[in-house]
């Protein structure tokens, strides 16, 4: 039980060390607002990562999320600016579109037994290409509701505030936590990630679950796209470029195994915070160019994967020892 939580504790420790280190090194780093900013600046990433956690725990991968995010910024800005549709219509349309894209990819993957890597990779192309079909140029959003969402702040204790996006992200995380822990669907995701063939033979609805997982990831990507436009107030085909990897990195740093079956959304949130604080640290440091973020993230992914490897080999060795001990014990108990 404890061993299972170890990766999350490592991520938590890492975050605390980074936050503490930053607070000691830089004046003005340590503040509640700076902590809240991590959520404000990364809320769309968290939303993407929630969907990605489901996919990765099920043993799959979704490379299309960054592009679907971009497509959803394009479609929403185009519908708002060019078709002058009301946000009440735009938001459901965009969410339905993202879900449909995910549904489509999930259907191909599951029904025809195709590799998720290739199908979602093609999805990456498809969504990015569709962006250009909508428009080659940036589309600015001038809709009042959107502007309101972009500029609104909600005061918390003291003078500290968060943006409405944070509430959306937190709601998504909480809903994700509930689904993963307390619904049959969520548990089926773990079962499929643990051993898909077993899941089939146990009579679990593997087909529907897997298709639903990709649909869910598509939904999260579309929602993240809407949230993203709250920051940029624009739709642009190059938004979210490479963000699929940020999402994957966030999930991995959060302790989810890329082999599937093991993972936790709390870890993913911590992973997102670690991701955010690296960026903040580099900004505070001042002299390093922002591309160091990538190198540091790459390094962290390396460290975490290494830890998981050591953890795995350690566990299988412990298991062998346990088995050796258990055989005579089992005899005695029966």
């Amino acid at each position: 039980m404890k061993a299972r939580n170890l990766p999350i504790l490592v991520t938590l420790a890492l975050f605390l060390i980074m936050f503490g280190g930053g607070s000691l090194a830089f004046i003005g780093f340590f503040s509640v607002q700076n902590f809240l900013n991590l959520f404000i600046d990364n809320s769309y990433l968290l939303i993407l990562a929630v969907g990605m956690t489901f996919v990765i725990v099920s043993g799959g991968i979704d490379l299309s999320v960054g592009s679907v995010l971009a497509l959803s910024t394009m479609v929403s800005s185009s519908l708002l600016a060019k078709s002058h549709l009301s946000p009440v219509l735009v938001i459901p349309i965009v969410l339905a579109m993202g879900t449909a894209l995910g549904l489509f990819m999930g259907y191909l993957i599951q029904t025809f037994n195709l590799p998720p890597f290739i199908i979602t990779l093609a999805g990456l192309y498809l969504a990015r290409g569709l962006c250009y079909v909508v428009s080659i140029d940036t589309i600015a959003i001038t809709n009042e509701f959107w502007k309101g969402a972009a500029h609104a702040t909600v005061n918390l204790i003291g003078n500290n505030f968060v943006s409405p996006s944070v509430f959306i992200a937190v709601a998504v995380v909480l809903a994700g936590l509930f689904v993963m822990r307390y619904t049959r669907f969520g548990r089926n995701v773990y079962a499929i990630g643990g051993n898909e063939q077993s899941a089939v033979l146990m009579g679990l609805p593997v087909n529907h679950t897997k298709i639903a997982i990709y649909a869910l990831s598509g939904f999260c990507s579309a929602l993240a796209g809407i949230v993203f436009t709250f920051y940029t107030l624009s739709g642009y085909a190059l938004h979210g470029k490479g963000m699929e990897l940020d999402a994957i990195a966030t999930v991995v740093i959060g302790g989810t195994l890329l082999t599937g079956g093991v993972g936790n959304l709390l870890g993913t949130v911590l992973g997102g915070l670690v991701y955010g604080i690296i960026q903040v640290l580099i900004v505070f440091q001042g002299t390093l160019n922002s591309w160091w973020t990538r190198i540091v993230i790459g390094f962290l992914v390396f460290v975490f994967c290494l830890l998981q490897r050591i953890f795995e080999t350690g566990k299988s060795a412990a298991l062998a020892r346990e088995r050796a001990k258990q055989a005579p014990k089992a005899q005695a108990s029966s």
């Binding site: 890597f117 160019n289 591309w291 990538r294 790459g298 390094f299 994967c305 490897r309």
Partner: peptide, 23 residues
């Protein structure tokens, strides 16, 4: 030697490599 899954192992350089190139 470390026995990582290839997609993860190369993900590291995928993420960091472009950073290295830019730096």
């Amino acid at each position: 030697w470390i026995g990582m899954q290839p997609i993860i192992a190369t993900l590291i350089l995928f993420v960091a490599g472009r950073g290295i190139a830019m730096v």
